[in-house]
Simulated scan of single mutants.
Amino acid sequence: MSLRDFGTDLRLMSLSALGIVCIRACPSHSQVINPKHLRYLDLSRSYMDVLPSSICTMYNLQTLRLNDCLLLTYLPEGMRTMSKLIHLYLLRCPLKRMPPNISLLKNLRTLTTFVLDTEPGRGIEELKDLNHLANSIFCMPENKGCNEEEVLESLKPHAKLKILELHGYSGLKIPQWMKDPQLLQCLTNLHISNCPRCKDLSTVWFLVLLEGLFLSKMKNLTTLFMNVAGVKAE
């Protein structure tokens, strides 16, 4: 299915939800007319490498789904204007970096992927004021010159976080905030992969609400549970 098949139907100003799948090319500005009342937009599994900047004028958009856009490497630079955005789904998107000043999206509750960067407006400080986030995946930067342990230590989430994913971390130690049972008291799912040097994850013992623990490519992991109250470490 191509976006051309919709023709002028996208000009319906009362439209509140729109789902489009398998776009073979990035649509031009003339093909995408931003409906004034659009609240929900699903472009999952689309074949585009860059999201059109016209998306940023959908000021009332609350949910944007871009899951499985396997060619998508960049999001529009002006996404900071989408102040009503609540859910941003980016699962399995090969993003190279995030748009700048994402901290201005104060209503965000779901951000499934955040690619860390050292450029101004794209670093970890962008997450500190997003107090409503309940789901987040953190991808470490490809810049091997950075101190990944310091970066991850600075990425301290709020206490209401429910889902945490960490991929591509090459540090030896997990951050101190992951050892704080009060900070992660609401965590229900923990996913960690491709962290080949990490040896100790005994902190999971304190995650009393944890329902799902998913670990992969952890070849040096030696400790999963700590010896507490006579419980033998596994």
Rank of each mutant, 00 (worst) to 15 (best):
V228Q: 08
L183Q: 11
D42C: 01
V115D: 03
K156F: 07
G78S: 13
R122D: 00
P76C: 14
P35T: 05
T203Y: 12
L18K: 01
L161N: 01
V151S: 03
R45L: 07
F114G: 00
L85R: 04
E77P: 09
I33A: 09
R65G: 00
I20Q: 06
Y40D: 00
L155K: 01
T81P: 02
E165A: 12
N143S: 08
S16I: 15
I86H: 14
F6V: 13
H37T: 07
L187E: 00
V21N: 15
T203D: 05
L130Y: 10
L184C: 14
M48Q: 02
P100T: 03
V208R: 15
T203S: 12
E165V: 08
Y169E: 11
S170H: 15
N34T: 15
I102K: 00
L90R: 06
I55V: 15
K106Q: 11
L88G: 01
P35N: 06
Y47R: 02
T63D: 00
H29L: 11
L221E: 01
A17D: 03
L70S: 12
W177I: 02
D5T: 10
S216M: 12
L213T: 11
N107M: 05
T8Y: 00
C26T: 15
T110P: 03
V50F: 05
A25S: 14
L164H: 07
G168K: 07
F225S: 10
I20M: 15
L43C: 09
P141Y: 00
T113C: 04
Y40M: 05
D129W: 01
S46L: 10
A134F: 07
V115Y: 01
H29F: 07
L201N: 00
Q176N: 13
L210S: 07
F225K: 06
